[in-house]
Design a protein around this nucleic acid. Structure first.
Length: 197
DNA sequence: AGCGTGATGGTCT
DNA sequence: GACCATCACGCTA
């Protein structure tokens, strides 16, 4: 079942927890890749100093964060890598969940094709935000797309095993002052595809 | 396992 | 011109 509009109409912290275990579906050129979300981070509205949309800063870049929950927000980082975020909450309330790591479920051959690395460890294919975007062929073309309607990128709910959720401070946001200690990173306990322990 | 380094570009001041 | 929600590799051990 594809997640519906209602699923995304909540604050990013709640959505970050709820998205764990859900499955991202990516289709291109008649190829289908499915991956399970195992690690997320919440970026939480205008007051969050770690967020690109802090103080409601709306620019060409951050505009998708102000859309209604259920859209994508994709940006370039360090000149080389894309990061995939899921926009949540209401229109003009800039909440988003960064997808930090996923576990391959289907289309592993395509994932390997998209990621040319020497390491033969499967974990290294998708255990980081830049890595998983490369693995799923995610780029600026998919920025701002509607996850409820798109045929190329969306999220589904499936039967999953029980899991425990662990949390920690978010990664690489030293600039965020008192917000850098907020434990808004969530991941599935003992999952080997998380980006770091 | 840990450190150092280089690759690379859009965005905002 | 500084900053980045990163990664891979090669070097030490």
């Amino acid at each position: 079942m594809r997640l519906k509009q209602g699923f995304y109409q909540k604050d990013a912290v709640q959505a970050a927890k709820d998205l764990l275990g859900k499955v991202i579906v990516r289709k291109y050129n008649d190829k289908t890749i499915k991956v399970k979300i195992v690690e997320t981070e919440a970026y939480c509205g205008a007051e969050d100093k770690a967020s690109h949309a802090h103080n409601n800063k709306k620019t060409k870049r951050t505009a998708p964060m102000f859309k209604k929950g259920g859209h994508s927000y994709i940006y370039l980082i360090y000149g080389m890598y894309y990061c995939l975020n899921v926009v949540t909450a209401a229109e003009n309330n800039p909440h988003a969940v960064l997808i930090r790591a996923v576990e391959p479920l289907k289309g592993l051959n395509y994932i390997k094709e998209n990621r040319q690395i020497k390491s033969s460890k499967i974990e290294n294919l998708t255990n980081g935000p830049g890595k998983l975007s490369q693995a799923l062929k995610i780029n600026k073309n998919l920025n701002g797309c509607n996850l409820i309607e798109s045929d190329f990128l969306y999220i589904i709910d499936t039967e999953t095993e029980e899991f425990e959720i662990e949390n920690s401070p978010r990664i690489n946001i030293d600039y965020a002052e008192e917000y850098k200690d907020k434990k808004w990173r969530f991941f599935i306990k003992n999952n080997k595809y998380i980006s770091r322990s």
